[in-house]
């Protein structure tokens, strides 16, 4: 008799007190897995396909990148070339552009030179604040 009269103590409702815990668990999962896209690199603007601009040779600094990663520098109006390391480009550009603010960097890379050497030179130029950069492939 006494056993039958005992009331059932288990609630028939879903406990809502733990709802916040579940929500926060999901929240933390999404917080951790979210990757906001961050893309980085060296930006450059390619010239339009049509326009060919005539530039005086005096305003060009030829930067030829060799397959072994060395760089040959030649001012547009002279025949003298000097061989330097990509690391020196930044300092050289700062000096050159101080003498001629209209200077354009013509970066010509040998077809077999590794991409990283071109990036090193581009990096140096951009570190020195160069804005007028032309990228070409070295011919001949």
């Amino acid at each position: 008799m006494a056993i039958l009269n005992k009331k059932q103590k288990v609630s028939d409702e879903i406990p809502s007190a733990s709802m916040a815990d579940i929500a926060f668990l999901l929240l933390i999962f999404f917080l951790v897995t979210t990757v906001f896209p961050k893309d980085r690199g060296l930006p450059i603007v390619l010239p339009d396909a049509q326009d060919d601009v005539e530039v005086s040779q005096r305003n060009i600094l030829h930067i030829d990148i060799m397959p072994n990663g060395t760089v040959q520098l030649r001012r547009g109006d002279s025949q003298n070339t000097s061989t330097v390391s990509p690391r020196d480009i930044e300092g050289i550009w700062r000096i050159e552009v101080a003498q001629n603010p209209n200077l354009i960097a013509a970066v010509k890379t040998h077809p077999e030179a590794q991409h990283r050497y071109m990036i090193q030179v581009l990096d140096g130029l951009q570190m020195a604040g160069a804005e007028r950069i032309a990228l070409q492939m070295l011919e001949g």
Partner: peptide, 23 residues
């Protein structure tokens, strides 16, 4: 080798796009 990079740049130019970022 740079010739591949140059070829890709030519293709991008042909498509009319001009903003390139070397990652």
């Amino acid at each position: 080798p740079y010739r591949f990079i140059d070829a890709v740049q030519q293709e991008i130019k042909d498509a009319g796009a001009i903003y390139v970022v070397f990652a």
